[in-house]
Simulated assay, not measured.
Amino acid sequence: MKPLPRVNIDDRIFTLKYYVDEKYAHLKIKDPTVCKRCAEKPCLHFCPAGVYRLDRRGEITVGYQACVECGSCRVACPHANIEWDYPRGGYGVAYKFG
Rank of each mutant, 00 (worst) to 15 (best):
Thr15Arg: 15
Gly71Gln: 07
Lys17Pro: 06
Cys47Asp: 03
Arg6Trp: 10
Pro78Gln: 03
Tyr64Arg: 04
Gly89Arg: 11
Arg56Lys: 11
Ile13Pro: 01
Leu27Phe: 08
Tyr18Trp: 15
Gly98Asp: 09
Phe14Cys: 06
Cys73Phe: 06
Lys23Cys: 02
Ile13Gly: 00
Cys73Trp: 04
Cys43Ser: 02
Cys73Lys: 04
Leu16Phe: 13
Asn81Leu: 03
Ala49Trp: 01
Gly90Arg: 12
Ile13Ala: 00
Lys17Trp: 07
Lys41Thr: 01
Asp11Lys: 10
Gly98Phe: 08
Leu44Glu: 12
Pro78Asn: 05
Lys28Ala: 03
Tyr52Met: 06
Tyr18Val: 04
Arg12Phe: 15
Lys36His: 14
His79Ser: 03
Cys77Asn: 02
Gly90Glu: 13
Val7Gly: 15
Lys30Val: 02
His45Asn: 12
Glu22Asp: 12
Asp10Ile: 07
Arg53His: 09
Ala76Pro: 04
Ala39Phe: 02
Leu4Val: 12
Asp85Tyr: 15
Val75Ala: 10
Arg88Trp: 12
Val7Asn: 12
Arg56Gly: 15
Thr15Asp: 08
Asp85Thr: 15
Phe97Lys: 14
Phe46His: 09
Phe14Gly: 11
Ala80Val: 08
Asp21Tyr: 04
Pro42Phe: 00
His79Asn: 09
Lys36Glu: 12
Gly58Phe: 11
Cys47Leu: 07
